[in-house]
């Protein structure tokens, strides 16, 4: 499980380090999956009952990480959308999706 998280991070990082905007966005999205799984892992993978009271008398899994992840997922959705639109506009305005060509003014 943890190894999977590591793999997600490795692939995501590799994608972010490439020059294409597309790949960078895909990379962030993979890393965020990794983060979700990481938080879940940290909460312990005791496969207990779902955190619903009154369902059955099993021990629950840790509900706090789940709440955190739920928030993370939704925020991730918003930021991904923003990032997408940003890159889309950048591509339209600058005519490239190569980050190397997207440098600002050269005399900073």
């Amino acid at each position: 499980m943890s190894l999977l998280v590591g793999l997600f991070f490795a692939i995501g990082t590799y994608l972010i380090l490439t020059k294409s905007l597309l790949r960078i966005i895909l990379g962030t999205s993979i890393i965020s999956h990794g983060v979700h799984l990481l938080i879940l892992t940290m909460g312990g993978l005791k496969t207990g009952g779902p955190p619903l009271l009154g369902l059955q008398d099993l021990p629950f899994t840790d509900a706090l990480p789940q709440a955190l992840i739920l928030t993370a997922i939704v925020i991730n959705f918003a930021t991904t959308a923003l990032f997408l639109v940003l890159s889309y506009r950048a591509y339209k305005v600058l005519g490239t999706d190569d980050t190397d060509q997207m440098r600002g003014n050269h005399d900073e």
């Binding site: 943890s2 590591g6 490795a10 692939i11 990082t13 990481l38 892992t41």
Partner: peptide
């Protein structure tokens, strides 16, 4: 770099676990 990040995070996850 990406392998390094992956390894670090995996270790982190394992030890957090």
């Amino acid at each position: 770099i990406s392998l390094g990040v992956g390894a670090i995070v995996a270790i982190l996850a394992l030890s957090a676990n």
